[in-house]
Simulated scan of single mutants.
Amino acid sequence: MQAVTWQGRKDIRVEEVPDARIEEPTDAVIRVTSTGLCGSDLHLYDPLTPFMTPGDIVGHEPMGVVEAVGAQVSALSVGDRVVVPFNISCGSCWMCERRLYSQCETTQNRETGTGASLFGYSSLYGAVPGGQAELLRVPFADFLPVKVPHGPPDDRFVYLSDVLPTAWQGVEYAAIPEGGTLLVLGAGPIGDMATRIALHRGIRVIVVDRVPERLARVSARGAEILDLGEIDDVAEQVRGLTGGRGADSVLEAVGMEAHGSPVAEAVQKSLRLLPKKLQQLMMTNLSVERLAALYLAFEAVRRGGTVSISGVYGGTSDPMPMMQLFDKQLQLRMGQANVRAWTDELLALLQQDEDHLGVEGFATHHLPLDAAPQAYASFQAKEDGMVKVLFRP
């Protein structure tokens, strides 16, 4: 089968690899019909390269049609259409029973001290072959895949794998009060979708970004926008729009690639000069992060407000403004999306006749799988109006 593989820093290639197959009686194999390129995939492109091995199959936003099922699988049949969540959860352990699927104890990675395994996401998260491929092995097939109806286009459902539940959880964690204002930092796929979800709920949303095409997308949906490149003091602007207090809630959807953190960026780049084992040690014990977006969230939220962090972070020794957090009496919620906790509610919304969240027009690019190398480069550079890519294997 063809698959998108990691070969080195900023070196993504499409190669022929062995076909995915049933390995456990609880597995299924799907033929992938659509698979997304996620902002988190860029972290593997650079800077999380120390945890990658040449030949790793990447990608974690797939959907497709069931091609084979293991002997113990009863909930799926060949020919079923499914979306596969990005985190691999068993559905029956102590954590899963509490709907903390991203912390599944069956697939937790205790050697690296991380949560549930993820498709296509490095040795930190299980080194499980990913979904940017023609075929995908899916564990726990009686629980993990989300069965969707045949008929509507893939674009209606594919975002159940990651974008929709991640954005939905981010809005839930933001705990926006009735009549309140949500500030969204970053209008990439997660920030954009979170904006749509909040607007659908009747919430006032202000979005901050620096890419014109991204700001235009959220503005067209009804959000107020602030261009980071044209404003000296974003937090002061937000306070001016919110009666002098600040936003009731902030959803930080930028994460480790924030602009405005030159020292941390230089440290990250300097790690490339070290041997791989030492890079791993530094990143898991002493690494620093680009925290400009997070600091802005703390500054722009009102006293007693909530900051919801959906952007991915990996630093372990970052300075936190504890006096500010304590003095402002802030609440923080964060973490990988517990995908299966939200999919039933989201699927019910997606199956309505009206496309409430605009998912069918959400992707800016539909590309063949062999276009992946250029797509990764363009997405990282924010070129060509690229916000969301779907590959068609």
Results as ranks from 00 to 15, higher is better:
Pro189Arg: 03
Pro189Gly: 04
Ile190Glu: 03
Ile190His: 00
Met193Phe: 07
Met193Thr: 09
Met193Glu: 05
Thr195Leu: 01
Thr195Ala: 06
Ala198Asp: 03
Ala198Val: 11
Leu199Met: 10
Arg201Gln: 12
Arg201Leu: 06
Arg204Val: 08
Arg204Pro: 03
Val205Thr: 00
Glu213Lys: 05
Glu213Ser: 10
Arg214Leu: 08
Arg214Gly: 04
Val218Asn: 02
Val218Arg: 02
Ser219Gln: 14
Ala220Met: 03
Arg221Leu: 06
Arg221Tyr: 06
Leu228Arg: 11
Leu228Glu: 15
Leu228Gly: 15
Gly229Gln: 08
Glu230Ala: 14
Asp232Thr: 14
Ala235Thr: 14
Glu236Val: 15
Gln237His: 12
Val238Ile: 15
Val238Cys: 06
Val238Phe: 05
Arg239Met: 11
Arg239Pro: 08
Leu241Cys: 08
Gly243Thr: 12
Gly243Ser: 12
Gly244Leu: 12
Val250Thr: 12
Val250Leu: 08
Met256Ser: 09
Ala258Cys: 00
Ala258Phe: 00
Pro262Gly: 09
Val263Met: 06
Ala264Pro: 13
Ala264Asp: 13
Glu265His: 11
Ala266Thr: 10
Gln268Glu: 11
Gln268Thr: 10
Ser270Leu: 15
Ser270His: 15
Leu271Ile: 13
Leu271Tyr: 12
Leu271Gln: 02
Lys276Asn: 11
Lys276Glu: 07
Lys277Thr: 15
Leu278Gly: 01
Leu278Thr: 14
Leu278Met: 10
Leu278Arg: 09
Met282Asp: 00
Met283Pro: 10
Met283Val: 09
Thr284Lys: 08
Asn285Ile: 00
Glu289Asn: 05
Glu289Arg: 05
Leu291Ala: 09
Leu291Thr: 15
Ala292Asn: 02
Ala293Tyr: 05
Leu294His: 04
Tyr295Ala: 08
Phe298Ser: 01
Phe298Tyr: 06
Val301Arg: 04
Arg303Pro: 02
Gly305Trp: 01
